[in-house]
Design a binder for these strands. Structure first.
Lengths: 341, 341
DNA sequence: GTCCTTTAGGCAAAGGTTTGCGTAACGCTC
DNA sequence: GAGCGTTACGCAAACCTTTGCCTAAAGGAC
């Protein structure tokens, strides 16, 4: 049917030609402009012409005219960690629902700090706004720029008002209450670097809650990798007055911790219980299935898109906390504390 | 310094105004157009003006004029599986090196087959070309369209000439030779659905190689999830003449298989050896560290970008096989075959 | 001094859409 | 049938760059 050397795709003018009307009329009809009045018959003719010509609006021209690109930028620190993937997927789908596309930027491993300034993506009109998850506490010299629509997601940034985060405090509460339920009086929290906002909020909540419950808390900060989780696990296993439960911030650290405890002949959950803050299907299949707190990652991704679109549309800034389903997934890695220290 | 209500970002005309030249001259100087002749002093003045005005070329206007968007679309089936993430990261970085950005599209879980036609992204000038990994063997009614620049990566598609894949045959060879080295005479290959091209190539290579080595091969197809891997493992464990080594196509299936063998009291590697085709750092930390074949995923992602840019630049189509580093990572899950069946 | 070649940079069109405004034709009222 | 309010569209500008072509001035050759 179209054996010709692929004539450049149809333009508005082509459709207008077929339908015998002016391009502007085609535009209004196809976009459902309510301010226009066309006869039903004309409208039908235009739609038919568009269909026949295989018309697709040129998004570039549209973007130029309307100074809206219809795409959003998402900056994540490291795709390797599964949570970013789920956040990404959540954002992707919500963006698609709302007619936007998402550009992912993975901040390079050796990125300098303060990180490079992705506002240039907005200045170059590549995206309408930014979703940032590369903020580090204190490290960033307040790039918050009211002229550039942006939200910080999962990790807070700037002066506030643009943050979309989950209820880490609630997650910690689930964990601590679970620990209490099983009689634990001394617990450890193995988490990422303290410069990461998410970590800081978990640690803060843990300190407060443990104090209230009279539980001894020990916090260990390490990188979110298997190797560093292993190292932390080794240290932990050597302690003479060892905590009876260890909560872990990332799945990578969890793998390391598990291996370290196994190598040190520390039985899970007999000698030490373990809880992960990173739920993943594979946790159910480890040698001792891991109890975890399942966080609403997809929802956070979606909420970030929603919040960013609010900013783009000039609505009031406000912080958002995604509370959705957050549940304790009980598996086999938590047992009654053996010898209350 | 810029306390004003964020004047709309500087345009070419603004810079020209400051430098006292015509916009076209600014454009040529800033883009290093070799066909233009300007005095060094003028050039310097222009650059200074651009710097001072914080000028950023509007990529949308540029795209409209040049009919090049500078972005690439990448369609992946399911982000959950880590290999897509690594492919994505590889593509992201290479694209960035070459001045492009990448838009990720995750094909919905419940996507219809034949899948939706992402050519519309090109027709709408949202991207300059497509990297597709959602092709299924036979299922797709030849969407190959010479008018739309595209490559199929990791999974072949179309009539050939646009495929960028890894050397799955080489990977299988590493696995089989490893098996031979350890005296295995009967092996199983637990892999994804046969409609997936990658799987088909692995299976084909395995059949040929095993035949040559006189090894008995049993192929099990299942979905790439923990649950289906578990189910396959259960079946496998029940076999009376059980293979002595099982190779696994995806890490998710591997987790399931491992759990099934554990539950069935089949010792790894004593009763059955295991090899994964999906290398991941966490494999080193499982209760029995998993031997795997490490594939050049980042390189494949990068090569896909390179190949797509060739198509976009109108160069000759050709299939590409990424061979780079492909290594056997020897860990603890392979042992000498106990009782040669 | 005249003519030709460089040098240095300006002019304007084009790319496809959106949208404020303008204007015919039509129908209705009186 | 004149006047007026709709109805149904058309006109053209604007969004910002890039680029083919043009021109004016300067420099060189004779």
């Amino acid at each position: 049917m179209e054996l010709a050397p692929r004539r450049r795709t149809a333009r508005l003018a082509d459709v207008a030609g077929i339908a015998g009307v002016h391009p502007s009329t085609v535009s209004r009809v196809l976009n459902g402009d309510p301010s226009v009045a066309v006869r039903p018959e004309t409208s039908r003719r235009i739609r038919e012409a568009a269909r026949q010509a295989g018309y697709r609006p040129n998004s570039v021209a549209r973007a130029l005219r309307g100074s809206r690109t219809g795409s959003l930028g998402m900056v994540v620190p490291l795709l390797r960690n599964p949570i970013w993937v789920r956040l990404q997927a959540g954002a992707l789908h919500r963006a698609q629902e709302r007619g936007y596309v998402v550009m992912i930027i993975e901040e390079a491993l050796d990125a300098p700090h303060p990180a490079i300034d992705y506002r240039y993506l907005v200045d170059e009109s590549r995206v309408d706004g930014l979703m940032l998850a590369n903020a580090l506490r204190g490290q960033r010299p307040e790039v918050a720029d009211p002229g550039v629509a942006h939200v910080f997601f999962n990790r807070r940034g700037g002066r506030g008002g643009n943050n979309v985060v989950m209820d880490e405090g609630g997650a910690v509460k689930l964990m601590v209450e679970h620990a209490v339920e099983f009689g634990h009086r001394s617990i450890a929290l193995l988490d990422g670097p303290r410069a990461v906002d998410t970590v800081a909020r978990r640690v803060g909540a843990a300190r407060a809650l443990c104090a209230r419950h009279g539980i001894h808390l020990q916090v260990i900060h390490s990188g979110a990798t298997e190797a560093e989780g292993y190292a932390a696990g080794v240290t932990l296993a050597r302690r003479n007055r060892r905590p009876t439960l260890c909560a872990v911030g990332s799945i990578n650290q969890l793998f390391g911790l598990y291996a370290a405890l196994r190598d040190a002949k520390v039985d899970v959950p007999g000698d030490m219980s373990v809880v992960s803050f990173d739920e993943d299907e594979c946790l159910a299949y480890l040698d001792v299935a891991v109890t975890s707190v399942s966080m609403p990652l997809d929802e956070l991704g979606a909420a970030s898109v929603d919040a960013l679109l609010e900013r783009i549309n000039g609505e009031q800034s406000r912080d958002v906390v995604v509370r959705n389903p957050m549940t304790l997934v009980r598996r086999d890695s938590v047992a009654r504390a053996r010898s209350a220290t």
